[in-house]
Structure formats: structure tokens, C-alpha cells
Amino acid sequence: MLLEVENLSISFPTESGIARAVEGVSFRLLEGETMGIVGESGSGKSMTAMAIMGILPRAATVTGSIRFRGRELVGLSDEELREVRGRDIAIVFQDALTALNPVMTVGEQLMEAVRVHRPGITSAQLRARAVELLDLVGIPDPERRIDRYPHEFSGGMRQRVMIGVSIANEPDLLIADEPTTALDVTVQAQVLDVLREVQQRTGTTVMLITHDLGVIAGVADRVIVMYAGGIVEAADVDPLFYETAHPYTAGLLASLPRMDRRSGDEPLYQIPGQPPLSTAWPAGCRFFPRCAHAVAGRCDTVVPPPVTVGADHTANCVRVGEWPKGVPT
């Protein structure tokens, strides 16, 4: 077991009360797999990643447990965390332009990332490693490009550099938080390819956070669907799409226009209403106010626990099996 998250909750004080960004999230990550976490803005998916990296703002209160290879990460000091970050667990953010330092060459940034965790390394070895990393993420002519600055790279090339920085120390876990959201689609395809290739060559475990169910379908082995700070469904990728067990997941899939199908004259399925605010979650199931299958008295009383619906497939819904699968009506 590479990572075990148990009953993770994250809250913040805000002007309009306590924001419960994440509540009661539990999941496990196996060595070598690609886990997709999908959800909309405010679902808590990025907060969960930041908690694993130990980079939440100081105002955040974190409870529960995050064990990495059995070692508890919640409550570690900054110094202890620094050792873990970058070496064992690394992260790639959405926006490579702001994540890279504009006044350092990409080579210097790659070499810095390596040096932090390998103090004794010689400068020739460092440079060779930086060139190797650029090559690994598919940057042509790495010996020459290494001395360039981030602004001399395109968006897609910068994101490759970021992936290079993140894998500099061969982390066991690579978290990619919307790594292709800011990129054009043909560049997105290139970067996803790089991620796949890096994973194949280094065997690293990948946690891919995205709002795009298409990206999930193409990349993930396992998927967690988050809504309003909690997990609503978890499954291997095929069962999630073909044996969808939570009304929110079903609603999301039904509301997506499909590029590979004629649209006809039917309107798209529309999930009614808006996602709730983290300062005022509804009682019971948080999807209850928008759910086509909700029943008062059952859905609005307790937060539904995960119900097993198949092999390694859970849905947090008290009405699992009581509503017809497929497009909600």
C-alpha cells in the first residue's frame, strides 16, 4: 500500500463561517496505478492533494490520517515534510508559467530540484541529470534548451519542464493537479502522453486530478468522484462509466455533450440547481437537493456511507440499486 487516506477532513475559518472544504475522505492508492480524482470546483479534490503534499495554508485545520508507506504525514513538522516533498511525493500544478521561476533558466530549476535531495552530487552529474530529465519529458535538443528561460518555452513545453522538475528525484507518488487544463487540446494530448510514458518508464504512481471525464476515461485505472467535499463514488474506470452507481456521476455523464455522437434535437440532461457552499453543506447527502432520486426522510438525514455495489466499487448513496441506472429523468 503506497498511500492510505483515512477520514481526512480539512476546514478553514472564513468571513462567512467555517468552510468544511473536505470531510471524511478515505481512499487507498496502490503502487503503480493511476488514480483519477474527478470533481467540479469546490469539490475538495485539490485540497485533498494539497493535504497529501503538506502545502495547505496555515489557517487550515486537518484531521484524520494520511499514511505514506505506513508513515503518518498529518502532524509532521515543516522540516520533516520537506524531506518527503519532492523526493517521495511531487506535484505538478495547472499553471506552469507561475510555478516556474522566471529569472532562472529551466536547467537551474531542474538542477536545484535534484540538488535539494542529493547534497553530494557534482555539478557535471547535475547537468547531465537535468539534460536527461528534459529528454525524458520529450523536449527536443535538451543540451541547448537547458540554458533557456521559461518565457522562451511554449505553454506545453513549460508544462513538460514542470513534469521534469517533479520527477527529478523519482518520486513514488506524482500528483498532477489539472496538469493540462490550461493547454490547447493537441498540446494536452502531448502532455498526457508524456505523463503516461514517464509512468511506464519510472513506475511511479500517479494521482491525476481533473474536472474532465474524458481525460479520466483515457488515463485512469481507478477513479474517485468527489462532490461537495466528499467522495460520492469510487470504482475502476470501466465500472464507473458503464455501471455508474451514484446519481451525481450519472448526472454528470448524461450532461456531457459527446463529440463522437450525433446530437439530435434532444436537450442535454441538466443537473438542477448549484453545488452548495462549503460554509453551508446541506444536512444528509450533499447532493440531495439536486438529486433526481432523492427521498425526503432518508436522503436528508445522515451523510451516506460508502455502499459496496461491485468489486472495488462503492457509492455513497442510501438508494443504491433502487433507481434505474443510466440517464436520470
Binding site: 487540446v185 493537441t186 494536452q188 494530448a189 502531448q190 502522453d193 474532465d212 471525464l213 474524458g214 481525460v215 479520466i216 476515461a217 483515457g218 474506470v237 470501466d238 462509466f241 458503464y242 455523464l253 456531457l256 459527446r258 463529440m259 463522437d260
Partner: peptide, 18 residues
């Protein structure tokens, strides 16, 4: 290059990577 929210379709596709 456009990902389709359907794992079987995704696996069967020949992607043209520019």
C-alpha cells in the same frame, strides 16, 4: 486529441499526436 468520456472508445482510438 479530444478525450471522449468513454474508456472503451478511448482505448480503441488511434490518437494523432502532433
Amino acid at each position: 486529441a479530444i478525450p471522449v468520456p468513454d474508456p472503451k472508445v478511448e482505448r480503441a482510438r488511434q490518437r494523432i499526436v502532433l
